[in-house]
Design a binder for these strands. Sequence first.
DNA 1: CGCTTTCATTTCCATAGTGG
DNA 2: CCACTATGGAAATGAAAGCG
Length: 355
Amino acid sequence: MGATPKNIPLSKLSLDIQNPRLDNPESTKDVIAAMLEQQGNKILRMAEDIVEHGLDPSSILMVIPHEEKEDRYVVVEGNRRFTALKLLGHPENAGKYEKRFKPLADRLPESILKAIPCVVFPTREETNHWIKLKHTGENEGAGVVTWGGIERARFEQGALKRNRPGLQVLDFLKKHADLDGELKDAPQKVSITTLERIIQDPDARGELGLTIEKGHVYSVYPADETTKCLLRIVRDLVSGDFNVKDVYYKEDRKKYISSLAEDRPNPAKRLKEKHSLAELPSKPLSPTGTGTTPTTRGKSTRPRRTLIPPTFAAEIGHQRLRTICHELKKLPVEDYPNAAAVMLRVFLELSLDHV
DNA sequence: CGCTTTCATTTCCATAGTGG
DNA sequence: CCACTATGGAAATGAAAGCG
């Protein structure tokens, strides 16, 4: 152990000859040449970003002491960043990219190159684990788990100002519909770009009674009509046998929308005014259950959706029976009436045999 | 000119293949 | 026999073209 943070000037840092991105370079000159050869434009882009925003403070260079030269360090992690910095310091080494690095170098505040935040490790071995985590994927979750479409959309809508229509649809459904059973984690599972492909098609929008202005989604139908059809679409999206290719081209989308049939909103119920999906008040929990106010905690007022109540407790000695019981607590009867019926029969017959 | 649609590139995923 | 890797194909996303 003993990784210590330290600010080191550019002049005291060396490129790593053993950089895994490169195939056997001889000298640091080669390293730079090879890095530029491999990904010149990416490094240029990074240099631009550094000039504009400075160095990413959350991600510092990992260095180890130089083997020969006292007082110098070798950069073992962050070589792309370091190459960008080095070329910002000495654009004359950038070969064919020189002309493009020069103006960037002129704009770079000098202080940046004087003290580059690094973390010093005593030996290369001690860096291996951390480098692996950064570069070899998720590592069962120990490493970097990259964002999917939904996470990205959330970020774009939240932190950046860009509105994502798909996200508004999902948030709307979370507020206004009971997402349970197969749809419980639908908001995480749907491919948001596919959803947006549908609702960004003007013809589809017309059928669904939606409009999008500056990324904000509006509906001209009452909430329950909107919910009905959006829920259907989301259900299709997570159903497994549905993906982009079903709505890839305009013609596909047309077919798909008409296949929604009565799940489309009823034109008779069209409202005069459009309203924003985001601003609709939440729907009351159970519109029908007025008298029996379920203020008491404990029992759920929601109608049961499975054959065996999920709370049902029984000691079942038989392995297979136990798992069948478990499955019957999860299988939504509405959606799988036959499977549920057959399973129940098997469950009963096996139970009798077992007794 | 901005919004749609189509095309191209990148990324993801499943499966066959390979070696321990 | 199992676990891991390479590979091809499909899907998602980004970019360009097209259209009104």
